[in-house]
Computed example of a mutant assay.
Amino acid sequence: MKLIRYLITGFFGAICLLLATLLPGFAQELQRYTFDSRHMGTQVNIILYAGNEALAIRASEAAFDRIEELNQLMSDYIATSEVNLVSEKSGSGEWVSINEDLYGLLQTSGQLSEMTNGLFDVTMGPLTHEWRYIRMMAEPEPPDDEKLERLLKKVGYQHLEFDEQTRSVRLNKRGMQLDLGGIAKGYAADKAIEKLKEFGIKSALVDAGGDITVSAPPPGRESWTVAVPKSTAADKNSTASLKLHNKTITTSGDMFQFLEFEGVRYSHIINPKTGLGSTFRIQATVISEDGMVADALASACTLMLPDQCLRLINGIDNAEAIIFRSREGEIEEWTTAGFDRFLD
C-alpha cells in the first residue's frame, strides 16, 4: 500500500509540474501588469493580472492587435477602411459587403438611433468632417445656415440599409458619410477584454480614451475603482469614485473639447438634428454591460436635458447614469434609479 501511495503522490506531483510548465500562471500568484499603446486616435491603457510577465505581454499584444484590427475597419481617417468604402459608394445603389464586426456594430447603431430619437447617428459624417475643418481654422466659427442646411440633407440613419443575406450595407443618398467616433471605442474595449479572456486573463481593465471596460475584479477585491470627474470644467478636481466589475463606463461632455464663438460655448459633440455642438454644458457618464450602449448613450445624453436622459437610461436594462450640468457657476447633479449601488 505504501508503494502505491508513493506512486500516486509522485504521479500527481509530476502532473502538477507539467501543468505549471505548459500553462503559464498555473499555481502562481497573480501580478499586476500595465501596458499602453496608441490606437483609434487615442491612448489605450490595459491593466491586467497574470501569473507571469510573458503571459501578460502576449495577452496585451493580442488585445492591442484586436483593437487595431477594428480601427482598420472602422476609422474614417484611414482611406482604405470599410467605413470609407461604404461612404464612397453612397447614393450609387451599390451594396457593400463588410466584415461581421462592422455589420453588427452598424445594426446596433441603428437601434441606438431609434432609442435616442436620432440624437445618436453614425451617418453624421458630413457634419463631423465640417467641424474638424472649423476647429483647425485660426478663427473658428460655426457654419452658416445655408451650409448647415446642405449638410443636414446628407445625414439620417434611416438611409443606412442592410442586406442580411449578403452581410452588406449601403447609404442611399449621395454624399453621405459614416463616422463611428461615438461608438467604436466602446466596442473595441469590449473586444479587447474578450481577447484577454482567451489567454486566461480574468481580471483586466481596458481604457480606450475614456471608454473603460472592466472584467472580474482584481485578486482579493470585490470591484475595480473608477473615478469620474464631477464637473464640466477642466480645472476642477472633484470626482465620484465608482465600484465596477464586468461593466463598461463612458463619460462624454465638453470638459476638454469645445469651441467658443461670440460668447457661446459649443461642445465637440454635434447634434445630428441641428448640425451644431451642444450648448447645455452637460457631462454624462453611462454604465452598461455593453460598451456600444455606454459609448453611444453617453454622447446622446449630452444633447438632451437631464430629465430626458434619465428617462431614457431608466428604461434600459442594466444601464445607469450620472449627469452633471454647469449653470451659473454651480454644478447640478442627477442620477438614475440604481446608480447609487456603484458609489464607493
Score class of each variant (00 low, 15 high):
Met1Trp: 11
Leu3Asp: 15
Tyr6Trp: 12
Thr9Val: 13
Leu18His: 00
Ala20Gly: 15
Thr21Met: 10
Gln28Ala: 11
Glu29Thr: 15
Asp36Met: 11
Ser37Arg: 12
Thr42Glu: 04
Val44Ser: 00
Ala62Lys: 03
Asp65Gly: 12
Glu68Ala: 12
Gln72Lys: 13
Leu73His: 04
Asp76Ile: 08
Ala79Cys: 00
Ser87Tyr: 05
Val96Glu: 06
Ser97Tyr: 10
Leu106Ser: 03
Asn117Cys: 10
Asn117Ser: 14
Glu141Ile: 08
Pro143Leu: 02
Asp144Thr: 08
Gly156Pro: 11
Leu171Ile: 05
Leu171Asp: 04
Asn172Ala: 03
Gly182Pro: 01
Ile183Asn: 05
Lys185Asp: 00
Ala189Lys: 03
Ala189Ser: 15
Asp190Met: 11
Glu194Met: 09
Lys195Pro: 02
Lys197Ala: 11
Phe199Ser: 05
Ile201Ser: 01
Gly220Pro: 01
Asp235Ala: 10
Lys236Trp: 12
Ser241Gly: 09
Lys243Thr: 14
His245Trp: 10
Thr248Phe: 13
Ile249Ala: 00
Thr251Ile: 06
Phe256Glu: 15
Leu259Asp: 02
Glu262Trp: 09
Val264Glu: 14
Tyr266His: 10
His268Lys: 03
Ile269Ala: 10
Ile270Ser: 05
Thr274Tyr: 06
Leu276Asn: 04
Gly277Trp: 06
Ser278Val: 05
Val286Thr: 03
Ile287Gln: 04
Asp290Gln: 13
Ser299His: 10
Thr302Pro: 00
Glu320Phe: 05
Ser326Ile: 10
Gly329Thr: 05
Thr336Glu: 01
Phe342His: 07
Phe342Asp: 05
